[in-house]
């Protein structure tokens, strides 16, 4: 990997004071580079600190240790370069759909004329398929439509990085599927760098280039990073027909069911938080791409470009 990553999470930790002058460590020593144009999903059990990681990336929260480097600079707070799609959509209920998106556009380009701002807002409302609902207020929209407005608002400021916290978890399966298609299409078309949290294994398989697995908290860490073996051109409908699909899915489920706990209590031998193992599950027996300090597995890895 010679290209410098767009985002580099460098040894961050988050601690909260606990009763009796103690501190609880939610997670620590998290290292993760994210390349430009990459779609990274993070999976882990409830309470392991996923939202906290995302808030730190967004600049809404500060790490207790370590730092996050974006574009060569340590971040010190929220920025228009990093747009957030909130789990609870977080629309301003007194503004219309257009007003909500235009609020973001105006924040990005304060000097633009009103017409140009509305034009840009309309373009992104159209993009998420809400053309015609510009004058509606959030209360008049369904859950899926609200989430679309949230997506339009985040994309309309043309951010370098898109951060999403379980954006579709509150939606029914059908709406979720449609929105996943749309987000994937938009991200592929624009080469959007995206970091997304999810609980849904299939969502991660469909959307992500790499899937980051977090062990349980407290004291969570990155257990491993799974590379998606599915081709970039994949469709949600026949995902399950792909030869590697079940290997990948079983690996993820297996992690969530047992290994997320065992790996917290007993880290794998030679686990290096700076270079967590990278795994690429496939129909053939699992292929370990790189395990630091374990050269024996490297011949298999030679097939890949790392």
């Amino acid at each position: 990997m010679t290209e410098k990553p767009l985002i580099s999470i460098e040894g961050i930790a988050r601690r909260y004071p606990a009763p009796g002058r103690q501190t609880t460590t939610i997670f620590e020593n998290l290292w993760l580079p994210i390349r430009r144009g990459e779609f990274v999903c993070m999976i882990g059990h409830s309470g392991c600190g996923k939202t906290t990681v995302l808030n730190i990336l967004a600049g809404l929260d500060a790490p207790s240790d370590g730092e996050v480097i974006v574009d060569g600079k340590a971040i010190s707070g929220p920025s228009l370069d990093r747009a957030v799609i909130f789990q609870s959509h977080a629309l301003l209920p007194w503004r219309t759909v257009l007003g909500n998106v235009a609020f973001a556009v105006k924040s990005r380009w304060p000097k633009r004329a009103k017409e140009a701002i509305e034009e840009q807002a309309r373009r992104f409302i159209e993009l998420v398929g809400l053309g015609g609902s510009e004058r509606k207020r959030p209360a008049e929209l369904s859950g899926g439509m609200k989430q679309r407005v949230g997506i339009a608002r985040a994309l309309s400021i043309e951010p370098k990085i898109l951060l999403m916290d379980e954006p579709f978890s509150a939606l029914d399966a059908l709406t979720r599927g449609t929105l996943q298609d749309e987000v994937r299409r938009i991200c592929l078309d624009t080469g959007q760098t995206t970091f997304m949290i999810t609980h849904d294994v299939d969502e991660a398989i469909y959307l992500a280039d790499r899937i980051v697995l977090m062990t349980n908290g407290p004291g969570a860490r990155i257990a491993e990073i799974v590379e998606n073996p599915l081709p970039r051109e994949r469709s949600r409908i026949d995902l399950h027909r792909h030869p590697h699909y079940y290997a990948l899915r079983n690996h993820l489920i297996d992690f969530l069911v047992t290994r997320s706990r065992t790996l917290r209590d007993q880290p794998a031998d030679g686990h290096d938080p700076r270079h967590p193992p990278v795994v690429r599950p496939s129909a053939a027996p699992e292929l370990v791409v790189t395990t630091p300090g374990d050269a024996a597995t490297l011949p298999l890895a030679a097939a890949h470009k790392h």
Binding site: A58, G59, L60, G77, P78, S79, L80, R82, A83, V84, F86, S88, A90, L92, F103, A104, S107, R108, I157
Partner: peptide, 14 residues
């Protein structure tokens, strides 16, 4: 005021 609305304002550098 709901925290999430303030967070929206913060991420948009309002």
């Amino acid at each position: 005021v709901r925290k999430e609305w303030l967070n929206v304002a913060r991420t948009l550098e309002v």
